[in-house]
Design a protein around this nucleic acid. Structure first.
Length: 838
RNA sequence: GCCGAAGUGGCGGAAUGGCAGACGCAGCGGAUUCAAAAUCCGCCGUCCUUACGGGCGUGAGGGUUCAAGUCCCUCCUUCGGCACCA
């Protein structure tokens, strides 16, 4: 009885008797090492003269109320691996993190609860910081920035003033979607059939004073400098967005009036086929040229069109509408009178807001002409022959026909010739247009950066106080920049953050903030705020020198780290954020603040992680994976390993909870190897595998193929686990190779293997080329292109030797027997292909 | 419609034009266990064959090549972006 109890106790000791030392306990190891890194300031940025540098940047998060989701650690783990690997290679690394903390959700929450948005924002940041630390990222937390911090806002405003002083920030009355019932301006996406998406209230297209940033002035450079960048398809997306288009502007006389209409076209070669002209409803000449009898119809058409949102005007499958102005233009090449129409398929904001319509060679004009019975003339023929009727617009290049002296020219040549001809008459000029529009930069919101701008106030009674509602006029036409020394302009405290029914926004209610006196004169502050993009446009620059009170950053800090070598973030920012940031950078380049034309050299977008059901993760779908839960159950290292192992970083991939189990098993195995019996000698097979793994993991990190790097580590770990005892040098190297991926377990094992302090700066293992290269290899032997066997031979074996070995294989010999040898293809180390008679 | 990316086992995926399916998940069989979990060993594209082996296989169809998942052409599907930009 006693005996069996003893045996049982030995075989199955109660939990408390197992030395924690022997078990892999992420919940114990991980916080301990995080505390170590914090206490020892392990990852505070150091810049050593003469060392190479690497600036590895993550797109900083908006600290939402729901906390981190599993998508965040994907990109963040990737950059962390790159950063940790670089440190071990002796590179100085800048790897910072911060918060893009202005924005609507915090404001909505404030409206609902009446608490100040800064309170909720601070709380959310706490959560995000805790979660990021929990994942063991090697950020230099001493450089944390927060876009809502006044010391940060100060420099956002300072940059705005640079734009303002250069005439790149201007005010304009542009039509916006104003919803009086909701008391706010809405985005195009928030307007459906002229009503607000929420509530169904009427939305008016109303001109409202807005700040515009003249990004179009930089369109050419923003397009051209993409060539300097190591970016994925994002470049193409930006090019499409910028929409550079080379064409010609041509003047048409209006018949019987002293009026010219200028059109933009990319197809001047089709001028002979222009059978009517269309101007946009917003075109300034509409009123002047419309004949008396057409006036009522045109006016009502224009009135209806202008109120429509862009969405309504460009709605899919919508049939085109338009009305005749009754006026005619003269086609400059053939003197024909062509009718001028108003139609909203022509955009007022692009080109000249007027087009020459060539229904024979433009699909839109073809459709419109068919609808209103306008003539369709072929002037470009695919084969040079004349065709009397067209069933569809022919938009490809061809040969000019019905084009007078130009007949017979091919389209590209025709474009040149006719443009030269028109230019010599002084009625045309080559022109480049862009789809890109100027950037509407103001929001009628509370939780954003105030503009560092104020305006003079004209009072009817100069002794009155505008704060009491005395009649006055704000001179928006005379914007004044706040002095640099007075920055930042802080947000006033409000208790009610609702937008209200005033298009000036909630800040207008803070009358004591808005109005102030200077040298006896009253002034009013700008009450719009900046959009959320503002802070994220330049945060990568503040990381250089985040606590500099004197300057945006020091020149030394700039020279130390810029440009950003690697930038990782979601592709949802492919155009907006990444275009805006490039624009600001170029302005700062012109100001002389930065020295490189582009901020982000290499860009990578991590792919979205879908839910286990292959759908986008969302609360509504109930498929959200919470990193807190995953870390509690499996540990941060397992999460990191799994997310890197899922597949290529850029790819969209579904989460599989069972998959993370595999990552955990791999770490358990590695734990067991390193805590088990070690030996000093190393056998050749192990040495070869080890050195190959060292090479592969390094190469894979360099090319950001983390999934195959993890795979290589697993193969090594599986092999070492199969040995009686693990060679000490293999265990040490495995731990170092693993450390960028799973830093906590690696630090723990490293210290148990006798390593000092931290492995964060331990030299990255090197490999022996001789051990990486195999002398003896197994190659496939094909007969007539089909693999029939495999042979082991020296890497540099001769063709003769290879053939002999192949013939010795029974199966291969069978296929060769009695057949005449026609040809032998032998690629040493790769393949032997024997071609024989059939 | 236009631009871009991608289609490989049951699943995630791997493969400088040279042995398709590495590695992992799931599954199956076995060892261990009173039992289970965990762990360890083995099998694991598909069809034919007791086996040795063979046929077929990387969205579809054609082509180039001694050799194609990989290169070229046509098409289909999925995903992302743009969408009357003259």
């Amino acid at each position: 009885m006693r005996h069996s109890l003893l045996v049982r106790a030995r075989q199955c000791p109660p939990m408390s008797n197992i030395h924690d030392k022997d078990r892999y306990l992420p919940s114990e190891i991980e916080p301990r090492w995080q505390a170590f890194w914090d206490e020892h300031r392990t990852f505070e940025t150091r810049r050593k003269p003469g060392s190479p540098k690497l600036y590895v940047l993550d797109m900083f998060p908006y600290p939402s109320g729901s906390g981190l989701h599993v998508g965040h650690p994907e990109g963040y783990t990737a950059t962390d691996i790159v950063a940790r690997h670089a440190r071990m290679k002796g590179v100085d690394v800048l790897h910072p993190m911060g918060w893009d903390a202005f924005g609507l959700p915090a404001e909505q929450y404030a409206i609902q609860t009446g608490t100040h948005p800064s309170a909720k924002t601070a709380e959310n940041i706490q959560t995000f910081r805790r979660q990021l630390k929990m994942l063991g990222f090697s950020y230099d937390w001493s450089r944390e920035v927060n876009t809502t911090d006044p010391s940060y806002v100060r420099w956002t405003q300072w940059i705005f003033l640079q734009l303002f002083r250069r005439g790149l920030a201007v005010q304009s009355e542009i039509p916006v979607n104003w919803c009086p019932d909701l008391g706010t301006v809405l985005a195009n996406e928030e307007v459906i059939d002229g009503k607000s998406e929420r509530g169904g209230f009427p939305v008016l297209r109303q001109p409202l004073r807005q700040w515009l940033l003249r990004i179009t002035a930089y369109a050419d450079r923003l397009a051209g400098d993409l060539d300097l960048l190591e970016w994925p398809d994002t470049k193409q997306k930006q090019l499409n967005w910028i929409g550079r288009s080379e064409g010609v502007e041509i003047d048409f006389k209006v018949d019987g009036a002293d009026e010219k209409l200028r059109v933009f076209t990319t197809r001047p070669d089709t001028l002979f086929g222009a059978t009517y002209m269309v101007i946009a409803p917003e075109h300034p000449a509409v009123d002047r040229i419309t004949t008396a009898e057409q006036k009522p119809e045109v006016q009502s058409y224009v009135a209806a069109a202008i109120v429509k949102s862009d969405m309504d005007r460009t709605a899919l499958a919508k049939t085109k509408t338009g009305v005749s102005t009754g006026a005619f233009a003269i086609n400059p090449v053939n003197g024909e009178r062509i009718p001028i129409w108003v139609a909203d398929y022509v955009l007022g904001a692009y080109g000249t807001g007027a087009v020459m319509a060539v229904p024979g060679h433009d699909e839109r004009d073809f459709e419109f002409a068919g609808q209103y019975g306008l003539p369709i003339v072929e002037v470009v023929s695919p084969d040079g022959a004349l065709h009397d009727s067209l069933s569809a617009a022919f938009v490809d290049d061809g040969v000019a026909v019905r084009s007078g002296q130009f007949d017979g020219l091919r389209t590209p040549e025709m474009k040149q010739k006719i443009t030269d001809h028109l230019a010599s008459l002084g009625i045309a000029a080559r022109k480049v247009n862009y789809k890109l529009r100027d950037w509407v930069f103001s929001r009628q919101r509370y939780w954003g950066e105030p503009f560092p701008i104020y305006f003079p106030v004209d009072l009817d009674d100069p002794s009155a106080d505008p704060r009491t509602g005395a009649p006055h006029k704000v001179r928006y036409d005379q914007p004044i920049a706040v002095e640099d020394s007075e920055l930042p302009v802080r947000l006033p405290d409000l208790t009610d953050f609702r937008p209200g029914n005033d298009p000036r926004g909630p800040l207008a209610r803070a009358v004591d903030w808005v109005y102030f006196q200077k040298e006896g004169r009253w002034f009013a502050r700008e009450t719009n705020t900046m959009p959320q993009w503002a802070g994220s446009c330049w945060y990568y620059l503040r990381f250089l020198d985040p606590s500099n009170e004197e300057r945006i950053f020091s020149e030394q800090a700039y020279d130390d780290w810029m440009p950003v070598d690697l930038y990782v973030g979601g592709s949802e920012h492919a155009v907006l954020h990444l275009l805006y940031a490039r624009f600001w950078h170029k302005v700062l380049f012109d100001v002389g603040v930065v020295k490189h034309p582009e901020p982000f050299i290499k860009l990578v977008h991590q792919g979205m992680i879908l839910g286990e059901n292959n759908e986008k993760m969302s609360k509504a779908r109930g498929n959200v994976i919470n990193p807190d839960d995953v870390v509690r159950e499996f540990g941060a290292d397992s999460l990191r390993i799994y997310e890197m192992f899922m597949g290529p970083l850029e790819q969209v991939k579904p989460w599989q909870t069972s998959g993370i189990q595999g990552a955990r098993r791999f770490l358990e195995r590695t734990w067991k190897i390193c805590n088990g019996e070690l030996c000093e000698a190393i056998d050749e097979e192990t040495a070869r595998l080890l050195h190959k793994t060292i090479k592969k993991v390094g190469d894979d990190i360099d090319s950001m193929r983390f999934n195959t790097a993890v795979s290589a580590l697993m193969i090594l770990s599986n092999h070492l686990a199969s040995l009686e005892a693990c060679p000490r040098q293999a265990a040490r190297a495995l731990v170092l190779l693993l450390s960028p991926f799973a830093p906590h377990i690696a630090e723990e094992l490293w210290s148990r293997l006798g390593g000092a302090q931290t492995l964060a700066f331990e030299p990255w293992p090197t490999y022996d080329e001789n051990l990486v290269r195999d002398d003896t290899v197994e190659i496939g032997v094909q007969v007539n292109g089909k693999v029939r066997g495999r042979i082991m031979l020296a890497k540099d074996a001769s063709e003769q030797q290879a053939l002999e070995l192949a013939r010795a294989e029974k199966n291969i010999a069978m296929y060769l027997e009695g057949k005449g040898l026609k040809k032998v293809i032998y690629k040493p180390g790769l393949i032997l292909n024997i071609i024989v008679d059939k």
